[in-house]
Amino acid sequence: QEIVNPESYIKHPLQNSWSLWFFKNDKSKTWQANLRLISKFDTVEDFWALYNHIQLSSNLMSGCDYSLFKDGIEPMWEDERNKRGGRWLMTLNKQQRRLDLDRFWLETLLCLVGEAFDDHSDQVCGAVVNIRTKGDKIAVWTADYENRDAVTHIGRVYKERLGIPMKMTIGYQSHADTATKSGSTTKNKFVV
């Protein structure tokens, strides 16, 4: 009888099940109508099957977003799991679409599905990449802006994983502040 190594036929389960969403800016429709669930996955193999099948972020049209969220969390501030939360925000300049965008987004995805934030990974809700003419953005969303330990741990690990130089900083903003801001910038609750 032949013994088959389970490694060769059992997919590698992820800690969480994830949903990938796509947003396409069509001004004739409501914001929610422009948001589509692409697919869900809960194994390493299925993550790659999806990632390898879809367009790179840098090929998307301006106004489009990808969002990866834990299953059951919708990629919007209003979701019960997001509304007391906030985001670590990376704003990219125009040159970075060519140089950094795709590798930053892939690194972000690997941080999420691999649970890179240790015991604080439970605080992660998801991540979003926004493709915009004036400059693309990538953000990691967490559940509770008042959870200083979790927010700062996630920020430090994330900054290191992206290879952001020590002398540069990234900021964390609450969704409540982003939703009610008057100007174009939101004040940072934390900086790493």
Partner: peptide
């Protein structure tokens, strides 16, 4: 425990043939 996968482990599966 938590199923943590580091980046090199995950990247190793990107171009693996699909499970049957």
């Amino acid at each position: 425990g938590k199923r943590q996968y580091n980046r090199d482990f995950l990247l190793g599966f990107q171009f693996m043939p699909a499970c049957v």
